[in-house]
Design a protein around this nucleic acid. Structure first.
Length: 551
RNA sequence: GCGGGUGUAGCUCAGUGGCUAGAGCGUCACGUUGCCAACGUGAAUGUCGAGGGUUCGAAUCCCUUCACCCGCUCCA
């Protein structure tokens, strides 16, 4: 059966740049709420309302379906180096504490910070460097944040402190090389000139900032029972890699996907849900032979970029940013961020939606041998023994066709479900003009969500509440509900009902009118073009289904 | 964590020491209405972010605190 369906209006207006309007609509229509709002809210936590949960579920389902369940593992996909398999996994949020020690998160997420009492600035303790310098018998330790210009900064600070002019630069008597503040002993504190201070001794003692949420296992747990809420879902896949290989007949290359909550105790949650302390990830760990990992990296980077575009993110606002060598771990061949121009960012700036990283064999080897350094060396503690011991289990893979045994390389496309949801919401929010009853143009707010993502697929209206129209509408509604999330509305004028659905992003509205009573046809109204056409009452399910597939 | 701003109805906001805290939009009901925010009538809705203080009297002044926005800082 063929049913005429209107295509989306190609010349859609640009989405708004005003974040407050989007936040307001999210609250008003039930996409997102502040967590524990009646108690004043909780910084870094957000809830999804009735429309939001549908939207986010649709995004997660689209990802799972496109990446895992409907993946074609028989043919070589366009751009792919070969055929590959995909499967899924669901791991717990709390894992063995050693997982995080070997993965590096335990050390990395225990940053020590110092604050400057004078400048009110905060620095990572291990990033402060400086150099001893003496002028007129006063010896100070001038500092800077480590980086390319640290030497110039240290010199500038010293000159300012001793009130020297450029021509008297030679009065600075340097003593030794640039060293880290962490290398100084406590007695030096009184001589430290902080990077942005004018006086000495303004830094606080180093204070621990723990970015992993701690919890305790067992009701009587002591220090030994400390566990962590996972800061990423990825490790659950690495530690289960052997289980998946042993319990299935999958061959490499194989991708294992997982969706789930992760937790990071962000110092400054900000920008609506963009940086939340509890968030949901959609991660794939793709295991392949080291010789082909570079090609697979390129494939996944482009494949993931295309996914966002296929679901409606405009290429104007979406960029693929390849990291430079200095941003990447040494073992990595490439890392790219897929970034979106969120309205809360300054013009020309982008925020990360997904990172696609070539991780070599770093993760599997870390869980075999122990925590590795960026050079893939085993990191040693002060006693010369491994700092954090690995599992000792062999996580290598034996190819039973070639008999080759190797530790697979990993490509990691790691996406944020909440960030994707926010990006799709921002992209969808538009204001355009539609005529009112008198033909006068009025501003219309419309969420131009991709039909696959739209929380409500269709709304059913009786044109008026009489002549049996509500009865027919109710039947059509119940029939459609077997297939799609649909919404019934008979309140107020039909124009108002259309506009309500526009704000919810509902792609189609079905109206039962006087003509339905005569010939059993109904009108379908398209959200974007406002066009209407008639289909048979009994063809509604097919028509909506086709519309959802076409866009 | 620092600095600045904001916080009053579901949303946007008015109200700067004095009567029972208001408007627009939205929501609900009834009537009318036959395809794009209609009209009429009526109705509901407020810990004035929270706690404390000053005062005869506080949404309003003071202190503390929480949340959001902007700028620093941080961002695995």
């Amino acid at each position: 059966m063929s049913v005429e369906i209107e295509k989306a209006n190609p010349s859609r207006p640009a989405p708004t740049r005003n974040m407050e309007e989007i936040v307001s609509l999210c609250k008003r229509r039930g996409f997102m709420f502040q967590n524990s709002e009646i108690y004043g809210g909780l910084n870094g936590f957000w809830d999804y309302g009735p429309l939001g949960v549908e939207l986010k579920n649709n995004i997660k389902q689209a990802w799972w379906q496109d990446m895992v369940t409907s993946h074609n593992d028989m043919d070589v996909l366009p751009g792919a180096p070969g055929v590959y398999s995909m499967t899924g996994l669901d791991c717990t949020i709390i894992m063995h504490p050693q997982v995080w020690k070997c993965s590096g998160h335990y050390d990395l997420f225990h940053d020590y910070m110092v604050d400057c009492r004078e400048s009110k600035k905060r620095y990572r303790h291990d990033q402060l460097v400086g150099r001893w310098v003496t002028v007129r018998e006063q010896r100070i330790f001038a500092t800077a944040q480590s980086g390319e210009e640290e030497l110039q900064h240290i010199e500038r600070q010293a000159m300012k402190f001793f009130k020297l002019r450029n021509k008297h630069k030679d009065q600075l008597q340097w003593d030794g090389d640039v060293i880290g503040v962490t290398d100084l002993d406590e007695s030096a504190a009184a001589s430290i000139l902080a990077p942005d201070a004018k006086t000495l001794d303004t830094l606080t003692d180093p204070r621990e900032f723990n970015l992993m949420f701690k919890t305790t296992i067992g009701a009587l747990g002591g220090a030994d029972d400390t566990a962590f809420l996972r800061p990423e879902t990825a490790q659950g896949i690495f530690v289960n890699f052997k289980n998946v290989i042993d319990s299935t007949r999958f061959r490499l290359p194989l991708g294992i996907a997982q969706m789930g909550k992760s937790f990071r105790n962000e110092i400054t949650p900000r920008n609506f849900t963009f940086r939340s302390r509890e968030f949901e990830q959609m991660e794939i760990e793709f295991f392949c032979h080291p010789d082909s990992s570079a090609d697979w990296y390129g494939y996944w980077r482009d494949r993931r970029m295309q996914w966002y575009q296929d679901l409606g993110l405009s290429s104007d606002r979406l960029i693929l940013r390849e990291h430079g060598a200095e941003e990447m771990a040494h073992y990595s061949i490439g890392t790219a961020d897929i970034e979106y121009a969120f309205p809360f960012l300054p013009e020309g700036q982008y925020g990360e939606l997904e990172g696609v990283a070539h991780r070599g064999d770093f993760d599997l080897r870390s869980h075999m041998e122990g925590k590795l350094t960026g050079d893939l060396e085993l990191e040693l503690g002060e006693d010369g023994k491994p700092k954090w011991k690995g599992s000792g289990k062999d996580l290598s893979y034996r190819d039973d066709l070639t008999n080759e045994k190797y530790v697979p390389h990993v490509i990691e496309p790691s996406a944020g479900a909440d960030r994707a949801t926010l990006a799709f919401l921002c992209e969808a929010y538009c204001e355009d003009e539609a005529p009112d009853e008198k033909g006068k143009m009025q501003t219309r707010t419309v969420m131009r969500l991709h039909p696959r993502l739209a929380p409500i697929k269709a709304a059913v209206f009786p044109l008026v509440k009489k002549d049996g129209m509500p009865e027919i509408a109710k039947q059509a509604y119940l029939e459609l509900k077997k297939h799609f999330n649909v919404f019934y509305d008979d309140k107020g004028a039909v124009g108002r009902r259309y506009r309500r659905q526009d704000e919810a992003g509902t792609p189609y509205c079905i109206t039962i009118d006087g003509q339905t009573l005569e010939d059993r046809t109904v009108t379908i109204r398209d959200r974007d073009s406002l066009k209407q056409w008639r289909v048979g009452l009994d063809d509604c399910v097919a028509a909506i289904g086709e519309g959802l597939n076409q866009k």
